[in-house]
Simulated assay, not measured.
Amino acid sequence: MDRAHYLLPQSNDDGPSVDGRRRRGQDSRARIVHAMLDLVREGDVSPSAELVAGRAEVGLRTVFRHFKDLESLYGEMSAVIEAELMSLADTPFKATDWRGRVLELVERRGWAYERIAPFKRAFEVHRHQSTALDVHNAKLVAGAREILRRVLPADLAADRDLFEAIDLLLSFDAWRRLRQDQALELDATTKIIQAMISALLDRTAAA
């Protein structure tokens, strides 16, 4: 879905009376957020307001007119990323059994992590000084944990040690360690995490 769908306020008034200034304001706001997304995606973890303004082809005053500070701009960017991840979460599983779905979560999250890796790096740089990013991160973590809880059988979801271990293996931190620090390929990373989760489930079943 077009990112602008999440950025622009939806209006029921599509007639000729729609105020042109308001439309231009909405367009500027969307361009600013898109510019921020593009700059971070390209590897700039902390683009300046001046750089965002230049990429969006708007004046610096326009950036601050729409966003009182850079934290609110990061908040808008977070909303777009969250919408993309939620659309993935709503996609039906291919696997028909719970174990297959748990292992499928590795592939699904790996796909998502590959897309959001530049943004996660940027967020970690600014989280200590940004309430918006801290709230965004907590919301994503809680949502991911809830998905895992729904996929697992109730008795396994209630096993704290097992649940926390699987949740850790499915985390962005585990994925980043294998992909970045250990320089593993995408397929190898997926197989290793799936193997570790399978071993945990086998151990629990044998206990």
Rank of each mutant, 00 (worst) to 15 (best):
G100D: 04
M36K: 03
Y6D: 05
L170E: 01
I32T: 00
G59W: 08
V52L: 03
D2V: 11
T96D: 08
R31G: 08
P153R: 11
M77W: 02
I32G: 04
R203Y: 08
V52H: 03
Y74P: 05
L37C: 02
L105R: 01
A89W: 06
N137V: 11
L105F: 04
D97Q: 05
D14F: 15
L85N: 10
A183C: 09
L60K: 13
L8T: 11
R29N: 13
L170R: 01
D2Y: 05
E57Q: 13
P47L: 02
I116G: 07
M196P: 00
Y6Q: 03
V40G: 00
L169S: 04
R29H: 07
S198H: 07
G143N: 15
E57Y: 05
F119A: 04
A188F: 02
A144L: 15
A154P: 02
H34D: 14
L140W: 09
R108T: 01
L7R: 01
L85D: 10
E104M: 01
Y74F: 15
E164G: 12
R31A: 13
R121E: 15
A199L: 06
Q10W: 03
L73W: 10
E57K: 10
G15N: 14
L178R: 09
F67Y: 08
D159H: 13
R177T: 15
A112D: 00
L7G: 04
R179W: 10
